[in-house]
Simulated scan of single mutants.
Amino acid sequence: MAAHGQDRQIDYIEFSVADIARAKAFYGRAFGWSFTDYGPDYCEFGDGRLSGGLTLGPARPGGPLVIIYADDLALAQRRVEEAGGRIVRPIFAFPGGRRFHFADPDGTELAVWSAAA
Score class of each variant (00 low, 15 high):
residue 113 W to L: 03
residue 84 G to S: 10
residue 78 R to V: 12
residue 111 A to Y: 07
residue 21 A to C: 05
residue 61 P to C: 13
residue 15 F to D: 05
residue 56 L to V: 06
residue 111 A to W: 09
residue 58 P to F: 04
residue 38 Y to P: 00
residue 116 A to N: 02
residue 2 A to F: 09
residue 50 L to P: 02
residue 89 R to A: 15
residue 19 D to E: 05
residue 43 C to W: 00
residue 89 R to G: 07
residue 56 L to W: 02
residue 8 R to W: 11
residue 62 G to E: 11
residue 30 A to D: 03
residue 98 R to Y: 09
residue 57 G to I: 03
residue 63 G to C: 14
residue 94 F to V: 03
residue 78 R to C: 10
residue 25 A to G: 02
residue 66 V to Y: 14
residue 63 G to N: 13
residue 85 G to V: 03
residue 85 G to P: 01
residue 48 G to T: 07
residue 76 A to D: 10
residue 13 I to L: 12
residue 42 Y to R: 05
residue 74 A to M: 04
residue 11 D to E: 06
residue 72 D to P: 02
residue 88 V to P: 10
residue 54 L to E: 01
residue 76 A to N: 08
residue 24 K to R: 08
residue 20 I to L: 15
residue 5 G to I: 10
residue 57 G to E: 00
residue 76 A to T: 13
residue 68 I to W: 14
residue 93 A to S: 13
residue 98 R to H: 08
residue 19 D to W: 02
residue 23 A to N: 01
residue 7 D to Y: 06
residue 116 A to H: 04
residue 90 P to Y: 07
residue 22 R to Y: 05
residue 65 L to Y: 01
residue 6 Q to K: 03
residue 42 Y to H: 09
residue 27 Y to A: 02
residue 114 S to C: 12
residue 115 A to C: 09
residue 12 Y to K: 05
residue 89 R to F: 11
residue 111 A to D: 01
residue 72 D to S: 10
residue 16 S to K: 14
residue 56 L to Q: 10
residue 100 F to R: 06
residue 76 A to H: 10
residue 25 A to Q: 10
residue 25 A to H: 06
residue 79 R to K: 14
residue 109 E to F: 11
residue 79 R to S: 13
residue 61 P to I: 11
residue 1 M to K: 07
residue 63 G to S: 11
residue 96 G to L: 00
residue 32 G to W: 06
residue 103 A to R: 12
residue 102 F to H: 12
residue 64 P to F: 08
residue 73 L to I: 14
residue 58 P to R: 13
residue 51 S to A: 10
residue 7 D to I: 02
residue 109 E to N: 15
residue 68 I to M: 12
residue 89 R to N: 14
residue 72 D to N: 11
residue 83 A to Y: 06
residue 40 P to T: 07
residue 53 G to M: 04
residue 70 A to N: 02
residue 63 G to A: 14
residue 9 Q to N: 11
residue 102 F to E: 08
residue 107 G to P: 15
residue 31 F to Q: 00
residue 42 Y to W: 09
residue 47 D to E: 02
residue 91 I to V: 07
residue 20 I to R: 03
residue 44 E to T: 05
residue 25 A to L: 10
residue 86 R to E: 11
residue 111 A to H: 12
residue 104 D to E: 10
residue 14 E to Q: 13
residue 66 V to K: 13
residue 47 D to Y: 01
residue 2 A to R: 15
residue 47 D to K: 07
residue 82 E to D: 14
residue 59 A to N: 13
residue 71 D to P: 09
residue 8 R to E: 02
residue 40 P to F: 10
residue 45 F to A: 01
residue 30 A to N: 00
